[in-house]
Amino acid sequence: MTSLHNNNKIKLGLVIDLDICVGCHACAVSCKEWNSGGHSAPLTDLNTSGENPDGVWFNRVHTFEILDEESDNGYTLNFPRSCLHCDDAPCVTVCPTGASYKREEDGIVLVNPDACIGCKLCSWACPYGAREYDQVEKVMKKCTLCVDKIYNSNLPEESRVPACVSACPTGARSFGDLGDSNSQVSKLVEERKGVDLMPEQETKPVNKYLLPKRRLGNTRNAPRMNNFNNLENKKLNILERFVDKILS
C-alpha cells in the first residue's frame, strides 16, 4: 500500500556528523559490500573495467567547498548522501504498484522487487536522488537501512547496525530510533541542533545531519579556497593579458 500511515512510533534512522566526516568513502564501500548480498541484492555493476563504469550504490559521498563570503570563512565539507527514510516520503505515494512502501513498525522505506514495474517515477519524486535504477534487474533499488542486518539475531548485538555505521572509522554515523526523544541519537540531534536536508521540500526526513561546529583559530580560506577560475585574481604577464584580451 503506497499511502503513508504517518503514525510510526519507531523511526529508525541515521544521524550523520559532518563535523567529523573525513570523506573516506568507507560507508559507501561497506554499504555496497553488504547490500550486494542483502535484501535488494544484487547491486548490479556494469562495465566495471571499461571507460564508463556504472552501477547501483545506496550511498554516495560528495565533497564540497563552502565559502561564506560575509565572514570570509571557507571550509571543506564531506557529505555522505543516502535515503533519509522520510516521514512524508514522496517516493512512496507516487508508486502506482505498491512496490514502494514505508514500514509501519519502524519507518524504513523499502522496495518490493517483485511488484516494481521499473517506471522510475519514484526516483523523480525523491528530491535527494536516493533511488537508483538497476538496469539489469530492471527494478528500482534503494537504501534498506540494512534491514537484514539490524534485526539479524545471528550477529552479535553490537553488529546489529547498518553497514555504513559499522564501517565509519571516525564515528560520524550514528544509528537509532529518532522517534524516541530519549534515545541517544535524538539527544545528539538536540544537543547539536541537527538539521533536515531541503526542509522546504516538506518530506520530513528521519535522518538528520549535524553541521560543522564553528571553527576556531585561523578560519580564513581553506587550502583549496582560492578562486582559480577568476583570471583577474591572478597577475597576468603582458602576453597573457594580450591573449586574454583577444579571447574575451
Binding site: H62, F64, G129
Partner: peptide
C-alpha cells in the same frame, strides 16, 4: 538547503562521488 546549511553560502562541488556518470 540541499546541505542543510542555514544561510545561503557559496557551495562548489570539490569532488564528485563518482568519476563516470550514473543513473541520476
Amino acid at each position: 538547503t540541499a546541505l542543510g546549511l542555514k544561510s545561503q553560502l557559496q557551495v562548489n562541488l570539490l569532488e564528485s562521488p563518482h568519476d563516470a556518470s550514473n543513473f541520476l
